[in-house]
Amino acid sequence: MFTNLILIFALQLLYVPVLTLRTIFLVKNMSVAASTFGTLEALIYVFGLSLVFSGHQSIAEMVVYAIGFGVGLYIGTRIESKLAIGYTCLVVNLMDMNQELIVLLREKGFGVTVFEGMGRDSKRFQLEILTKRNRENEVMNLIEEYEPKAFIISYEPRKFKGGYLIKAMKKHLRKNTTIKLH
């Protein structure tokens, strides 16, 4: 019985991160990865449930199954945050134009579009920054360092086309392809 408990827990630690990644790939429209993880998820799920419901229904096995699910969710979200798949868009509202911050962000390879607008009491400046999700903390830290009072909104765009980031990625891809050919 103790072996079953350990096996059930281990299967949940494997199953739930796979389920989490499958869901993320599905939401990000990465259908091949989603279907691959879905197949793996189904195999683990069926095997795990068959252990829990084979023969006698042990309360301990059901509890371990549920605890494993919870711990697996935690592990799955940690894995996803490390992978940081996709892109993020940051909208940064500033009281004053901070040219130093804008130049620094651009030098570091971030596409920055600057807008000027009218707030409740005075003129405001808004930066719109599109970047890969794995660089979001880097951007946030730079903004915090140069503009600690900035108001920042971060969201994940579903689709985008053209612009600086696309050109920069294509240029980077061409450069790496040229290097590989030699």
Rank of each mutant, 00 (worst) to 15 (best):
M1P: 10
M1A: 13
F2H: 09
L5C: 14
I6R: 06
I6C: 07
A10D: 02
Q12D: 08
L14Q: 07
L14K: 05
P17H: 08
L19V: 10
I24R: 03
I24D: 00
F25R: 06
L26Y: 07
L26H: 10
L26N: 10
K28C: 08
N29T: 08
M30W: 06
A33N: 04
A34R: 00
A34N: 00
F37S: 00
G38K: 00
G38F: 01
T39M: 05
T39S: 05
T39H: 02
L43E: 06
L43P: 06
V46G: 12
G48M: 11
S50A: 14
L51W: 02
V52W: 00
F53L: 10
G55E: 05
H56Y: 14
Q57P: 11
Q57W: 14
I59M: 01
E61F: 04
V63D: 12
A66W: 09
I67A: 08
F69W: 09
F69E: 00
G70I: 08
V71R: 03
I75A: 02
T77S: 01
I79V: 09
K82C: 02
K82F: 11
L83H: 05
L83T: 04
G86M: 00
Y87E: 10
Y87H: 09
C89I: 13
L90F: 05
V92M: 04
L94N: 03
M95L: 11
M97C: 13
N98M: 08
E100N: 12
E100A: 11
L101M: 08
L104A: 14
L105E: 07
R106L: 00
E107S: 12
F110I: 03
V112W: 04
E116A: 10
G117H: 02
G119T: 05
R120Y: 12
K123A: 05
K123H: 04
K123F: 01
E128L: 14
E128V: 13
T131C: 09
K132P: 04
K132Y: 02
M140F: 15
N141A: 15
N141E: 15
E144T: 15
Y146I: 12
P148E: 01
P148R: 05
A150D: 06
R158M: 12
K159C: 15
G163T: 08
L165H: 00
L165F: 06
I166M: 15
I166V: 15
K167I: 13
A168N: 08
K171M: 09
H172T: 13
L173K: 14
L173E: 14
T177L: 15
T177G: 14
K180R: 11
L181K: 14
L181A: 14
